[in-house]
Design a protein around this nucleic acid. Structure first.
Lengths: 348, 348
DNA sequence: GCGATCTACTAGAGCGCTCTAGGACCGGTA
DNA sequence: TACCGGTCCTAGAGCGCTCTAGTAGATCGC
């Protein structure tokens, strides 16, 4: 009965080696092993070598939990993302290398159906992340403010007015203005905006659209179809437009996915893009370049956003006196194949 | 000089409350607080209530690092994914709820440029994950075997012959066979396969294609274009076919992305889909339904794969005697708009 | 009125690290 | 010889939890 070791789960796999084991094997103290693994000075080259060899032979791997617990710093950044936003993928790919360069670890936590932002963030905090990087959070500014006062927090992709957080985003207003200017230049007057509803950045894009239209004296032609930053919203908007029977000459979608949904919905109609309708997206997600028609869109500099976000977080972690910043990156209109002059007879 | 508190990073933010603080405030011992937070019996309802209130007032949140360190179990599953594989997104969305249901935490670690699989896995192990769930790893079977002997490991989406790991995947051979049967039934004979090279699952799909073609007496018509599970591979294959000037009547791509790339490359040619060429993908990724032409493809049951993977991991964690399993899920041919009969005069 | 048996709780060791304080030994200097 | 400053190393406390062993007090049977 006493020997029923096998019954206990996992005992068979054996305890993994600890720093103590490495120390014993290398014939030094635990503290010295610690020094070596942290790359701190205070160990001779020979000893260092001996320790590393011993560790390697034992298959030793430092235990993060213990390390976290013992040190006051965790050097870990928590990233909240939505696993189905391709643009978030672009951002994550930029965050990893920058964090590594600065000596930080990265933990990802995804939102999704049945897992809201609060839950995702709690998970990160529970793992001792020192700072949070939130990709396009939809939480209200007050909530972000509360978070920001508890932990260093960086928000990517939207404004968070009044909240004690860094924000890193594209100058959306400028991007939208570029699009409207470009469309007007082509001769468009009847330019509709499918907005992003309450999605991150949507409010500002909406505002910028209104302002730009007015600036061109098109205040009357201004029209916003309520939407969202999803394919479904684009499809719905497309159906709406078809049902009305009166197409605008250009549509400025809330983001690329929405633009894609729109084009999808129009696919089986007799509306041809860009002959009858110009369509512009926003984001320039990686996958967009695969579209059968190249989407004209506004590029957000994902790598730039990612790098700035990491640096904001680290700067504030390493110097508690630095206040949160607001960083704006330049958008860039990328003209491809879904835009052109309006059909004859409908010029501005 | 002695009061230069503010100079130290983050000291200003103040120590976060510990179990000790909660215990003091509730007037009980630390151990009792621990009991309450773990939902274990041994505390009266009244005390339980008092403890929870105290914790709430202090904004207490249990520290995972300490919890991990103290208990022998971490109840954490580590998931390795490629952040730009939409299908991985589908899987992650299935993994979270199932893990939560079983009382496990999930940690994500992404591969990407500059961050290979080894690195991603190391990160997970360093955070004390008890089990690894690898989404379509490309590591050789021996490497997986090594990992699997160190930690409970589940591989999703490919075979790992001889490796001490669970594998959960779709019966690819069956899926491919269904596609070939369907295409032959439509009258196709000239069916080309763009393969996935060394990508997960690719070898089996390739084999299944060969077998299916032979079974229909089409061994001579058999042709494989070397590729990959990326858009680029599809584009390249498209260019190859165009350059040759002799189109097959149907193409079976390695996966949806590859199929999309292919169609993208053919878009400006005079090859019309499905009139001149039928195209079939594989995976049925979420985004596929947005395609201007609905892609005929083979659906993998992402939720099913995710759930089985989590259960495999948990089963083996909780009972060390359970051996690794190999689970096969049924694929399902989803016929949409990119396939049809071959052009007249090219029937089989 | 005594031990037995609950329930409700506490003490204290220990998880695998980090980090401060300090010790041993060296060559050089007064 | 005594002392210094430097390099290389060790001892030991403690991070915030979990968990085993045990205690205090109520309830109960006889």
């Amino acid at each position: 009965m006493r020997d029923a070791e096998g019954a206990e789960p996992d005992k068979s796999r054996g305890r993994r080696p600890t720093m103590e084991d490495v120390a014993a094997r290398a014939g030094v103290s635990r503290a010295l092993v610690s020094l070596v693994f942290r790359g701190k000075p205070g160990a001779s080259a020979a000893t260092r070598e001996r320790v590393l060899r011993a560790a390697d032979e034992l298959g030793y791997r430092p235990d993060n939990a213990a390390r976290l617990l013992a040190s006051d710093r965790s050097r870990t950044l928590g990233v909240m993302l939505t696993v189905h936003q391709p643009f978030h993928g672009d951002l994550v790919e930029g965050i990893y290398p920058e964090a590594e360069r600065l000596g930080y670890d990265v933990l990802l936590s995804a939102t999704g159906p049945g897992r809201d932002e609060r839950k995702a963030v709690e998970a990160l905090l529970g793992h001792r992340c020192e700072a949070l990087i939130l990709l396009g959070p939809s939480a209200p500014a007050e909530h972000l403010d509360e978070l920001g006062r508890r932990t260093v927090t960086v928000v990517i992709g939207r404004r968070a007015p009044g909240a004690h957080v860094d924000t890193v985003r594209t100058a959306d207003a400028k991007g939208i203005r570029q699009v409207v200017d470009y469309l007007v230049e082509l001769g468009h007057r009847d330019i509709v905006h499918i907005d992003g509803g309450r999605a991150p950045g949507a409010a500002e894009r909406r505002r910028a659209y209104r302002a730009a239209m007015r600036r061109h004296g098109l205040g009357d032609a201004l029209r916003i179809i309520p939407g969202d930053h999803t394919d479904e919203a684009g499809i719905a908007a497309g159906k709406t437009l078809l049902a009305e029977g009166r197409m605008p000459t250009a549509v400025l979608a809330g983001n690329d996915r929405c633009a894609m949904g729109l084009m999808h919905a129009l696919r089986s109609s007799n509306v041809e893009i860009p002959r009858d309708l110009s369509v512009v997206g926003y984001d320039d997600v990686h996958l967009a370049h695969l579209w059968p028609f190249d989407l004209t869109t506004v590029r957000q500099n994902a790598d730039g956003l990612a790098q700035h976000a990491v640096r904001c977080a680290v700067d504030r972690l390493e110097d508690g006196t630095v206040p949160p910043r607001e960083i704006l990156l330049e958008p860039k209109l990328v003209v491809r194949g879904t835009t052109g002059p309006p059909p004859d007879g409908r010029r501005g």
